[in-house]
Nucleic acid binder design. Structure first.
Lengths: 345, 345
DNA sequence: CCCAAGTGCTTAACCGGATAAGTGACCCGA
DNA sequence: TCGGGTCACTTATCCGGTTAAGCACTTGGG
């Protein structure tokens, strides 16, 4: 149980003052190169690591960013998306020697309260807002608070904070045109929560493309992203007299559940039904047949978001451009696999 | 952009000294009840939240615990286990107003380095060690460091720190006896990483039970828990001349992948093959047929671990019992579903 | 030769809390 | 009436860093 080393210890060992040690360690002028080298050597030898609280108190920065996730404990694990996102975020943060603070909340009110507390406590220097909604109270809330934040999703019109997002419209067109080319005319879509921004964007894009092509029907059912609802909606869809020949799911979990229901009903995939999933996670390759899906690099996306947040935190408060710019990532690419094929006659 | 309120602000507003405010807010003697009430009222009105860094610096506690996960960014999302665990941990921590710091690392060396840094920085008051191995360098490392830690897994003989664990032997017997009762005599097992403690425990338990029952064969293949390896091993197993009539998987992801391979080979489940999965996540109910699996309450498990860690952090350093006790949780329960049935003749 | 500027370091204040020690005012009992 | 004890608060110091200000000492230009 070694004792923690402070700059006072180093100062004593080097025969200089605390101030000189601080200057030397932070690469600031005020000490000669010879002294600096000596201090650095002693610090390294003693295994010095600055006390985070002391530094935070001095420079008013926590060297940490926060994420508050609004999910139920039972369903949070099933979607690979978040862990992949967090993993990407974390990679960038730790490269910049920032920490990641995670909190799971139940309601928006709780989430806002968490942001307020983090801000007041100075526990984090900024936050990442996930699950951006069409009208999202959190955006103004954190902006009013003056808490640096980046929206993981967009684009957001009139935003007071940066957003990092993928174009969702293009992949929607890609999917529909692909299915159309395969001969599908009756298509169903099991969408996510309607209050989420990307759901709304996809809704519009699908509707527009469906109108351009001469599809017979494109019916959309909104769900809560869980396997249960995905299965339930699929069961209803496949039992109806006018069964679709293809179903598009807004996430991978519902697509897997839908595939299960198709098996349950004895349908051959892709001969009798084609299935497409958003968010290509390893989950899409576990099933048989493997799921045709829209591939995005989620860890890279997380890294992007974290980079923008770090820039924002480091930026001068005056630079408004830095606060409202938004980054558009490469749109998702369609990865055709075994779950899609020509429409039945 | 409101300004943060400090105890000096409250002191000025109440017409008392900083010290009196501190006593009042912390419920310590030293102020009259009338003054205390007045100070509390003013603090509440001004929306006071103590600066975390300042308090940490004074009391030498970070009010946070850390988790370092050793996983690749690409596969970290697929296993629901971790997110569920974290969610349970988080619930307990935030109830005790502790924060959770998460870091993802690549190697053991990095992980140890993270613990050392966290300790030196005083960024966390304690850590949770996941994926406990049969001979785990981390246990001694954190103990030597004097960093409070709880092992998420066990039991660990001669442990210098508390462990929270489930009995894994009993469920192993349950599974084998259940499959035996269904008439299965040729059983295969796709196990996890052999270096992990619970894999070793299960290895032993299966071997013992297999010896008691008069099973024809129980072959075990070790894997890395990924769907790829699960699929690959399953493909080999099912293609062999002496095909098992039942396969037990050490996690849900491999079981789902195995189910996919069985479909791919045209096998009827459960008529021709029975499948059992460990760790009943929502994933097990997405497939068709739904997977028979071993149900544990992972969020509750996480909560338990966090509680033990909080106790440990709060405990007097002298109390050795508190540092080495271990908590055994309710063993996993077998939840039979559609993926298991009588053995074929 | 002397003053100004620069170098290299020390000193001390500060961040925002916690807390030991100090200080009156008051009460009580001998 | 006076010493001792308690109460209610203030003062001052500390935690471990950062940083403005101060201070010797060197150097160079006029």
């Amino acid at each position: 149980m070694t004792r923690r080393v402070t700059i006072a210890d180093i100062a004593a060992a080097a025969g200089v003052s605390k101030g000189a040690v601080s200057y030397a360690l932070n690469g600031r002028p005020g000490v000669s190169e010879a002294t600096r080298a000596k201090i650095l050597a002693i610090a390294a030898e003693m295994g010095f690591v600055p006390n985070r609280a002391a530094r935070s108190l001095s420079v008013s920065s926590a060297q940490a960013v926060g994420i508050a996730l609004r999910r139920s404990p039972r369903t949070i694990g099933i979607e690979p998306y978040f862990m992949e996102l967090i993993s990407g975020i974390e990679a960038t943060l730790s490269a910049g020697s920032f920490g990641l603070t995670l909190q799971i909340v139940g309601t928006v009110e709780e989430e806002l309260e968490v942001y307020r507390r983090w801000w007041a406590e100075r526990r984090v220097d900024g936050v990442l807002l996930c699950d951006v909604g069409t009208s999202d109270r959190r955006l103004d809330f954190v902006a009013d608070l003056g808490l640096p934040a980046v929206a993981v999703g967009g684009p957001i019109e009139g935003a007071r904070l940066p957003a990092v997002w993928h174009d969702d419209a293009e992949p929607c067109r890609d999917i529909l045109e692909y299915l159309y080319a395969l001969g599908h005319r009756r298509i169903a879509r099991v969408a996510g929560l309607p209050r989420l921004l990307h759901t709304a964007i996809r809704d519009t894009a699908y509707a527009e493309t469906a109108a351009e092509l001469d599809l017979e029907t494109l019916t959309t059912f909104h769900s809560d992203y869980t396997g249960e609802q995905g299965a339930q909606i699929t069961r209803r869809l496949l039992s109806s007299s006018k069964r679709p020949s293809a179903i598009i799911y807004d996430n991978d979990v519902m697509a897997v559940a839908g595939l299960g229901v198709a098996h349950e009903l004895g349908l051959e995939i892709p001969e009798q039904l084609s299935v497409v999933a958003w968010d290509d996670s390893p989950l899409c390759r576990l099933t048989h047949p493997a799921l045709t899906s829209l591939t995005r690099d989620i860890p890279a996306y997380g890294s992007n978001c974290a980079e923008v947040l770090l820039t924002l935190i480091g930026a001068e408060p005056a630079s408004v451009e830095a606060r409202t710019f938004s980054v558009q990532c490469r749109p998702a690419q369609l990865s055709p696999r075994g779950s899609t094929g020509p429409a039945p006659d």
